[in-house]
Amino acid sequence: MAEKLNVELREEFGKGAARRLRVENRVPAVLYGHGEAPLHLSLPGHETALVARNPNALIQLELADGSSHLALIKEIQRHPLKRSLSHLDLIIVRKGEKVEVDIPVVITGETVAPTIAVVDLQALTLSVDALNVPEQIELSVEGAEDGHQIFAGDISLPGDAELVTDAEILVVAVQTPRVEEEPEDEDAEGVSEEGEDAEGESSEESDEEE
């Protein structure tokens, strides 16, 4: 289901105009695709931040003139310190078309102790229906033992999604953590022993002098 946002067309451009929008708690954005002229938009800050928590969310953009567009987020720019939204690039999508998106991998279940699941690939690139983009791909490692591996090609994909990522890429590996023993401090022992020897020699020399 698409997330609805009421948006406005932007008539001012440049850094100064974008800064003024952010002060008003709005986010500048550009919508493009399907050979149409880009639309420069102003989005509501709070609502857009909530939608952008899912970078693959389907968005229904409602304009004041009654027109609407379905879109996906192509790129998010954030403030380097505050991490607030600075700008969005949006692409127009239509029913029946496929798009390539990166879907995060989420691990579920527990491996056999003391092993752990190590995620080598954080997301899979899939070709999916633009109106049915999955939020995540769940991989169960319940009961998996040391040496168990899951490659991209082993994963069951939702619906009619197609794998774009190389099927031979390792996604998850189950392994036993290595425990490194602390090396003995031989130098310290040597210094101690040498110190004792030196102390003994000094004592003997003192006795001889007396």
Rank of each mutant, 00 (worst) to 15 (best):
G16L: 07
S42G: 07
V23T: 08
E8K: 14
E11D: 07
L9I: 12
R19E: 07
N25R: 13
V30I: 15
G16F: 13
R26K: 15
E8R: 15
L43N: 11
R20D: 09
N25M: 03
P28V: 06
V27N: 10
P38H: 06
F13M: 14
S42P: 10
V23F: 09
E12G: 02
V30L: 03
E24W: 04
H40K: 09
R19N: 06
A37N: 14
L41D: 06
K15P: 06
L9F: 13
S42Q: 14
V23A: 11
L43K: 11
L43I: 01
A17Q: 13
G16V: 13
R22N: 12
P28M: 13
R10I: 12
G33F: 05
P28K: 15
F13W: 07
R19D: 10
R26L: 02
A29R: 14
R10F: 02
G14N: 14
H34G: 06
G14Y: 00
R10S: 01
H34Q: 01
E8H: 06
V27C: 11
E36Y: 05
S42R: 12
L39K: 08
E36P: 12
H40N: 14
P38T: 08
R20C: 03
L39T: 02
R20Q: 14
E12I: 06
E36T: 04
L43V: 14
G33K: 10
R19T: 10
E8Y: 13
F13L: 04
L39A: 05
K15Q: 15
Y32K: 07
L31C: 02
H34F: 05
Y32A: 11
V30E: 13
E8A: 15
K15H: 09
S42K: 08
G16Y: 04
L21G: 07
A29V: 00
A37I: 04
E12T: 15
L43W: 04
H34W: 03
E36I: 10
R22E: 03
P38K: 00
G14S: 03
G16R: 13
K15Y: 04
A18E: 10
V30S: 12
P28N: 14
H40A: 08
F13E: 09
R10W: 01
H40R: 03
Y32F: 15
G33H: 03
A18L: 08
R20P: 10
A18G: 00
A29N: 00
L9G: 05
A37F: 09
L9P: 08
F13D: 04
S42I: 13
N25A: 11
E12W: 09
L39Y: 01
K15V: 01
V30M: 14
A37H: 09
H40W: 04
A17F: 00
G33C: 12
R26M: 05
N25Y: 07
Y32C: 02
A17P: 03
R22M: 08
F13C: 07
R10L: 02
R20A: 04
N25F: 09
R26Q: 15
H34P: 07
R26G: 09
G14C: 11
A17N: 03
G14Q: 12
L43P: 01
G14H: 12
R10K: 11
L9V: 12
L21Y: 10
G35D: 00
A17E: 05
R22K: 13
